[in-house]
Design a protein around this nucleic acid. Structure first.
Lengths: 118, 118
DNA sequence: CATTTGTTCTATCAACACTAGAACAAGTAG
DNA sequence: CTACTTGTTCTAGTGTTGATAGAACAAATG
């Protein structure tokens, strides 16, 4: 499993990791029962602090995507989402409309986040 | 013109203001030539600091939505968007799909920004 | 002229992400 | 049983950023 963390993005590091694991699970790249790298190991390979990786893992556990067990690590429990393609399609539609209105990516992202709050 | 700022949201205060002005302009609620409240005045009525309001105004100016002139204030320069409703509808669809997959607002926003770049 | 309004500056405070290190608990593997 | 792995919990420090606050200034208005 390969993850990419980009510290220059405005999304926090642990959130980037959460997003990538979530997508991998949704797409079936990570299957139920499969094991994620140990936190210390992943932290070393991504050049992150262990706590940052663990924070992502714990959020994923709170969302029911993985199970955390001492001595064993993080095991995927969630099943692939049948319709994650619909999300990607909907996002493409937003990008199309936003471009037509000359809305910047940031402005559109802001609108999206506001839509979440209501 | 009426704006609502909610400090309990995770969106920053100045970003909330930017979004609301942007939407008002897109919807034609704010017409070109129309004047926004003076920063000090709006800050008082929204219970914000002047600098917070000015930060929002300056971002809007950088995006070409308003013009800032000393002694005169903030004047709307952008024209209403023909079809902002389609954008809002598309955004709603994204929010629905993202919620179904338990994607966080931030994760979804990140996906959106990535979609913009491709 | 006085007033309005944006501009620029310094400064402080709080929250938060991230890092760091240590000790600990519970499971695994020999 | 022992050694190792791995997550859990704790304290603590650092840096960034949003927001607040106040002051002085510049330019346009009336």
């Amino acid at each position: 499993m390969l993850f990419r963390i980009d510290p220059s993005l405005d999304e926090t590091l642990f959130a980037q990791l959460v997003t990538q694991v979530r997508l991998a699970v949704a797409q079936g790249v990570l299957q139920p029962g499969e094991r994620l790298p140990a936190a210390r190991e992943l932290a070393a390979s991504l050049d992150l602090n262990v706590h940052t990786v663990l924070r992502a893992y714990q959020l994923l556990r709170d969302d029911g995507l993985i199970e955390l067990r001492r001595g064993r690590g993080a095991i995927v429990t969630a099943r692939p989402a049948a319709d994650h393609a619909k999300l990607l399609a909907a996002i493409d539609e937003v990008v199309r409309e936003a471009r037509a209105l000359r809305f910047s990516p940031e402005a559109t992202a802001t609108l999206l986040k506001e839509a979440f709050s209501s």
